[in-house]
Amino acid sequence: MKDIKKKYGYTFMLLGLAAIVILFFTITKAGAFWKADVWKGIMAQFPEYGIMTLGLMFCFICGKMDMSFMMLADFATVMAVRHIVQNVTPEMDNGAVGGVIIVGILIALGIAVVGAIINAMLVTQLNIPPVMATISMQMVWLGISTAITRGDTVTGLPVLYTEIGHKTFFNWLPLPMILFIVIFLICWFILKYTVYGEKLYMVGSNEKAAKFSGINTTAVVLTSYILCDVLATIGALVMVSTMASAKADYGTSYVTRCILILVLAGVVPNGGMGKIINVLITLITIQIIATGVNLFSNLNTYYASLIWGALLVIVLILSTFMTDEGVISFKKRGK
């Protein structure tokens, strides 16, 4: 029993937090909160950044940072959407349109892989600290997509594509949610049962020691960046579908949000720790707060940021009193 308490202590804390949040909205907005529409909304909204967060999680466990994932994903989706918009003609049937869309998606994923390789190269081959490398890359990606789109929004997506973001099964299960669940299960499986998952935690904990143990650390870091950037791009593809357009700087606020969720969930960027179940709980809690705040007609959506920011700071402070599990305080390393 004591073992379970110790192992899942942080999970229990997050569940407690979720319970408090739910309780709060139940008391204040019982009538409006426990309605099917609210929960449908929650399920429809968090998958896109949920997928991105799961991607970034791999980087964090690996002890790396990626500030560029959103700008890279924006660039990738801009290119995909441009391809789709340019190649779809009104007289095409669904099959042909579908073909164009698939090519577009492949273009986006290809760009994501290239971006990930560049990030990993900068970090592992040139030894640039990840924060510095990716913060510069994010400017480069933003620059390219701004130049290509001339700062404009790319629109004109076919209905077949915008469907993805809006399609609902059985009148309650959104397609993005299914996508999220599938990706979540894959990520969970990777972390728990694959050799890569095992190596990931060890490399994140001490890259040098892993290298001296015969682990190909470069490959582990590269894989983490690829997972991060590809998942971010999948999330962005869903986002683009919901918004029916793409732009060079869509979703910039997601960078902060994804980092915030991971840190709250106890996945800190100094690596080697974090549980995927905690990420899931935190994701849902964060979305419940956002949706719940919207139920108050006198509050605007920015109240959610207010709560998120305060929550992050409080959890960070609390974490300094914890020792074994969850977020621990950390100082600069690598000096």
């Binding site: 935690y201 060890m202 904990s205 001490n206 040098k208 020691a209 892993a210 080697g272």
Partner: peptide, 9 residues
């Protein structure tokens, strides 16, 4: 400590 072990694992 720096080359041999992943201390937190």
């Amino acid at each position: 400590l720096t080359e041999g072990l992943c201390l937190a694992q």
